[in-house]
Computed example of a mutant assay.
Amino acid sequence: MNKIVTATKHMYSHSSTRSHASYSSRRSKASTTSTTSSRGVAAAAETAALRVKLEAHRIENEGQEELEQLEFEEKMRRLNAERKMANLKRKHEAQKVETQLKMEEARLYAFEQETSSSTSSRSSCKSAGSRTMPVRTDNDLTKPNLRAGASVFTPKTHDENLVEALARAITSSRLPIPKPPIFTGDSLQYPDWSFSFTSLIESKGVPPEERIHFLKRYLGGPAKEAVSGFFMLRSKDAYQRARDILEQRFGNSYVISEAFRSKLDAWPKVHNKDKSGLRNLSDFLLQCQAAAAEGKDMKFLHDMREIKKITAKLPDWMVHTWNRKIAKSKRQRKIPQLSRIRKFCLRRI
């Protein structure tokens, strides 16, 4: 009985050992299969990622090549445009040089014509002077005074007149084009501006309806504001009405005289050894002298009180010298004039 139990236990233990080994073997195979499967998935994922990366690189390279191609084409267009511009500039410079050469040739031709004509006239005068005048008798008085070898007067041809006109045009074209100054409302500057505008703009045959635009261009400050309402008008008399306003407000002789008086009153005193200030005062006195000769309202500048105001602007040592001269003039019953003060200042500069 004991042998049977022992055998049964032995068989049971052997069966249990064998089943455990079979389970372990199956578990090991499953683990190996799972590891292999995970490695395959990782390899497939990495392969897919590399393919995506490769495709991205390919697209990026194509875009870069297209961008480089566009940049190259743009650079070539710029180079072609710069080359064309350089060629046009060279042609323009060549045309300018050619035009200048033609102008110089015309001047040279005109100069040669003038030289040859003056030389021929001098030679004819010499030959005429070397001849002896024949003695005329009473019978010769009835004959016409004609000589067979006398030169016939020929007027200048059209070409010669054209060359002279071209030479004058070339000379005048080299002169700077004069322009009137911009008047801003200083009454002391109005006479000069009015004369300049009339001679340089109005007298050039500019239509009346266009003169208002030139007037607007050469006005500024209070003067422009005074007539700004006329710039919006389209009537032909807008220009003349604007000029009348400027004449009344800034060109009135009384207004100009008051401007001179105010500037003299505000003139600073000239200090000792200030030659520049003394020269500026003498220049303004010359302007006052010219204005006094033109307008009746400027006669106040010759008044003794105004002359005393002017001399008060001089340095102290010049005031003493001037007072001595005035005292001598009073004894001689001479009235000092504005021109005398200016000469007195000029001698001390």
Rank of each mutant, 00 (worst) to 15 (best):
N2H: 07
N2V: 03
K3E: 13
A7M: 15
T8D: 12
H10A: 02
S19A: 05
A21S: 10
Y23P: 01
Y23M: 11
R26L: 11
R27S: 01
A30S: 14
S31R: 09
T32A: 02
V41Q: 08
A49Y: 12
L54K: 15
A56S: 12
E60C: 11
E66G: 07
Q69K: 15
E73N: 00
R77M: 09
R77H: 00
N80T: 14
A81S: 03
A94P: 14
L108F: 13
F111P: 11
E114N: 08
R122I: 02
S123D: 07
C125F: 01
G129M: 08
R131N: 10
T132R: 08
N139Q: 02
L141T: 07
K143R: 00
P144Q: 03
N145E: 13
A148M: 06
T154N: 04
T157F: 02
D159A: 11
V163P: 08
E164R: 15
A165I: 13
R168W: 01
F183K: 11
L188T: 10
Q189A: 05
Y190A: 11
P191Q: 04
S194I: 00
I201E: 06
P207E: 13
P208F: 02
P208Y: 03
P208A: 07
L219T: 15
P222V: 04
E225R: 05
F230W: 04
F230S: 10
F231V: 09
F231P: 07
R234F: 12
D237P: 11
Y239C: 12
D244I: 01
L246E: 03
E258Y: 01
S262F: 04
L264N: 05
L264H: 13
L264T: 12
P268D: 06
P268Y: 03
L278Q: 13
A290G: 10
A290D: 05
A290F: 05
A293D: 13
E294V: 05
G295C: 11
D297Q: 01
K299T: 12
F300H: 00
L301M: 12
H302G: 07
R305T: 01
E306I: 10
K308W: 03
K308A: 08
I310F: 05
L314A: 07
L314V: 12
P315T: 09
P315F: 00
H320F: 02
H320P: 10
H320A: 10
H320M: 15
W322E: 03
W322T: 09
N323D: 07
R324G: 08
I326F: 11
K330A: 12
R331G: 08
R333H: 04
R333Y: 15
Q337R: 04
S339H: 00
F344P: 09
L346W: 04
I349P: 09
